[in-house]
Design a protein around this nucleic acid. Structure first.
Lengths: 339, 339
DNA sequence: TTGAAAGCGATACCAG
DNA sequence: CTGGTATCGCTTTCAA
């Protein structure tokens, strides 16, 4: 816990010179800069956080609000928290965690106490109560996800509609005429708003291209995931030559397992594409093509926007949709001639 | 962002009176206290975080170091992060998240910048590098988990040995003479140090009581979890009349599913007890007795200890083991007379 | 029971 | 290119 004046003394300069040398906010002669840096290093000096906040009017902290509701899918949420934290560190920012009721109350609290320079909002619900809060506080706020009512907000998300359309384009391009869609359980279509966006995107593009498209939303039942297995059989029986998956990792694994059990090879007999997954689809057997939801991409953009807001740059409100990217892993091919 | 002097003005007192009234650190006449509280409420006043840290030499922040390694079991880790955050809020403390490389580097950083009053260490590895760090920094540090070398450290954890012994006692008390143990995959026994503690506790107590005890550590294979199913069959064939589970939730579900498939009813034909689970075993079919690992219990104690350290109370170093608790859900019974 | 004022440890303005 | 110093907003002694 060395203080600035100790560094100044050790380097034989004034404290203001130390401050400037370390922040780089004005030019310093190479020699004194060297002496200061050395002194700072030897004393393991770091500016006192509180003093810096007070004098510099910057806390170097972003509040991250993530309710961690009981029913949330832990791995995906953890990936976003991690990605946010990593992105923030690039700008020398730390993450202060606001969970549960504090997800909302904490926003008010950090805003009026000046504990954070901005707020990043995760696990956004369609009718999220943090929307109203974001409008009332004066802190820069960026949503990672898109609430239904997003007027005047800065939001970042994957372009799920485009991602789904991209999957259809790929399959249509290979000659498939009938696509089966396995989605999340029905309840997910109310609690979040990206599952419906995927579904809409898929069905819209399929109908544009004149493809048949059948949707099944299997329940998350027991360890055998019988609904997922049934879904696979239903879709194949219905004539689908390709499957698009937008569901959890276990459902992916089970669907592939069922295909194998039915003796259908991927991609020779059936093509498979995953949409919006945060896990690694290349680790499945067989590896699956994916148009992933990349936490790093959303979070880096969100943090960059938050930084710009902190720097008082002009940042127009609105939704930034991240363009989807197709990752080939060999799970798609033209349909069998016999189909 | 109202400031203290505005509150003072509104209440017609000096700023020091406001400070004391709000912190309760000295007695204030009921009348002025009321006026101050009202003014504070109307202005939505909260002390500026930076100023408070600087003047009060308290940041009201705990750093939480949690690497979030790629291979970590997300749901359990999320539960601990959440529990820590909730426990901290009881003392009006916030949680600053240090992940990845920052899990270590960040500890040094917050220590020398005075950003946090203490450090809470999660996801503790047997040979954790944060052990050495904790000894070098002067910040109060509490480990939630027990590293191999914990000399001079303050650690909190479930008493896994006792939990395992408790499971054996229960089954032995019901008359079981042969117990089957299904554990985590073998690799887990190197990366963490609680799986071996459960195993040791179980085998030790079983041998004390003269019970037979067979251990299987099934791999985490495909979606069918064939290894887990095989483990169940192996143990039953070997004469086990009761199963003790210390594995992930899916393995639990699969084991129960396999028992059902074999026509063995719980608890009439087989008794089942779960040890060290962070998930809800009463939600399985059938519900399973559990001696759980309760994140709230560990984290509350850890935070309490951290607070005491912050308050400069005497806190002897050492490992605090939390006594296990048996939760009945009807999955145990005496073995069949025919066995 | 209350108030005045001295810090806390930086940043950044104003001078030189 | 470098230094002195006012300032940030609060906590806490010291006085009354």
């Amino acid at each position: 816990m060395a203080k600035i004046h100790e560094v100044a003394e050790a380097a034989g300069v004034s404290i203001s010179t130390v401050s400037y040398a370390l922040s780089g906010k004005r030019s310093i002669s190479p020699d004194t800069r060297r002496r200061i840096e050395e002194a700072a290093r030897e004393l393991d000096y770091r500016p006192n956080a509180g003093a810096r906040m007070l004098a510099g009017r910057r806390t170097q902290i972003f509040a991250l609000t993530e309710p961690f509701r009981a029913d949330t899918h832990a791995p995906a949420h953890m990936a976003f928290v991690l990605a946010t934290s990593i992105a923030a560190r690039r700008y020398e920012y730390d993450i202060l965690l606001l969970t549960e009721e504090e997800a909302s109350a904490g926003m008010r609290r950090v805003a009026s106490s000046g504990l954070a320079d901005g707020v990043l909002v995760l696990d956004v619900a369609p009718d999220d109560e943090r929307v109203a809060l974001a409008r009332r506080i004066s802190l820069p706020t960026v949503f990672i996800g898109v609430p239904d009512d997003h007027d005047g907000l800065v939001c970042v998300d994957l372009d799920f509609e485009a991602a789904a359309a991209l999957a259809v384009d790929r399959l249509a391009g290979l000659g498939h005429r009938s696509i089966g869609f396995i989605g999340h359980p029905p309840t997910s279509y109310e609690k979040s708003n990206f599952p419906p966006r995927v579904r809409r995107g898929l069905e819209a593009r399929a109908s544009e291209l004149g493809l048949a498209c059948t949707t099944v939303l299997p329940e998350n039942d027991g360890p055998r995931r019988a609904s997922v297995r049934a879904a696979v059989r239903t879709l194949l029986d219905g004539g689908s030559t390709a499957l698009v998956l937008h569901c959890d990792d276990t459902a992916h694994a089970v669907a592939l397992d069922e295909l194998a059990a039915l003796g259908r090879r991927v991609p020779d007999d059936v093509s498979v594409v995953s949409v919006g997954a945060t896990f690694d689809t290349s680790a499945f057997h067989p590896a699956i093509d994916s148009i992933p939801l990349v936490p790093g991409a959303s979070c880096e953009l969100a943090v960059e926007l938050a930084m710009r807001l902190v720097e008082r740059e002009e940042v127009p409100a609105g939704v930034r949709l991240i363009a989807p990217e197709y990752r080939e892993h060999g799970s798609t091919a033209p349909p069998r001639a016999s189909d």
